[in-house]
Amino acid sequence: MKISLQTRVAQDYLSVLDQFNLDLFTALAPAFPKMKVLRFDGSFPGDRVEIELQVGPVKRRWTSLITERHITDQEAWFVDEGQELPAPLTYWRHQHLITHHGTYSIIHDLIEFRTKNRVLDYLVYPVLYAQFALRGPVYQRLFGKA
């Protein structure tokens, strides 16, 4: 399944890209489930991000590897791909794309995920969509509304 979200912000796309760091990562964390950062290398190919998600007494690990990073004169992006995923996820690819639009930029969260079956994909979709939609106001608070 695919999720595509866009947030318009007031800063230049390269400035936004430069701020994809641990502080932003933790600011973007949803209130639920509880998240603990175990490792955050950055957003360059070969970097790893490891978190622990906790729901009550149950803890699950999520590890992603940064596999791509590109910068052009109109856009910049990096991709994280799931290596160790919490159930029910079996596949994860998240492209963080920032596009240049003159006086503002648009942050695109382009997510592709899978679970063990299509029915479960449809059940997980609204939960993931809601969690990532909550990033928009955080982006606008940190980078300004455009």
Results as ranks from 00 to 15, higher is better:
1 M>S: 10
3 I>Y: 07
4 S>L: 10
14 L>R: 14
15 S>H: 13
15 S>Q: 13
24 L>M: 05
25 F>S: 01
29 A>M: 13
29 A>K: 07
30 P>V: 09
35 M>R: 11
35 M>A: 04
35 M>I: 09
38 L>P: 01
40 F>K: 04
40 F>V: 00
41 D>C: 05
41 D>T: 11
45 P>W: 00
46 G>Y: 09
46 G>L: 08
48 R>K: 13
51 I>H: 03
52 E>L: 14
52 E>M: 11
53 L>Q: 09
54 Q>V: 06
56 G>T: 12
58 V>C: 14
59 K>A: 14
61 R>G: 03
65 L>D: 12
65 L>A: 08
66 I>K: 02
68 E>G: 06
68 E>V: 06
69 R>N: 12
70 H>L: 09
70 H>S: 14
73 D>C: 08
73 D>F: 03
75 E>A: 13
75 E>P: 00
76 A>G: 11
78 F>V: 08
79 V>Y: 12
82 G>K: 07
83 Q>H: 12
85 L>D: 08
86 P>F: 15
87 A>S: 14
88 P>C: 05
90 T>M: 11
90 T>P: 10
91 Y>R: 14
91 Y>L: 12
92 W>Q: 03
95 Q>A: 10
97 L>M: 11
98 I>H: 02
106 I>F: 02
107 I>L: 07
108 H>P: 02
108 H>R: 05
112 E>L: 07
114 R>G: 09
114 R>I: 00
115 T>L: 09
116 K>S: 13
117 N>E: 14
120 L>W: 12
120 L>M: 15
124 V>A: 02
124 V>P: 11
125 Y>M: 14
131 Q>H: 01
132 F>A: 07
132 F>D: 06
133 A>Y: 10
134 L>Q: 15
135 R>C: 04
139 Y>D: 05
140 Q>E: 06
141 R>F: 10
143 F>W: 03
143 F>S: 01
144 G>N: 04
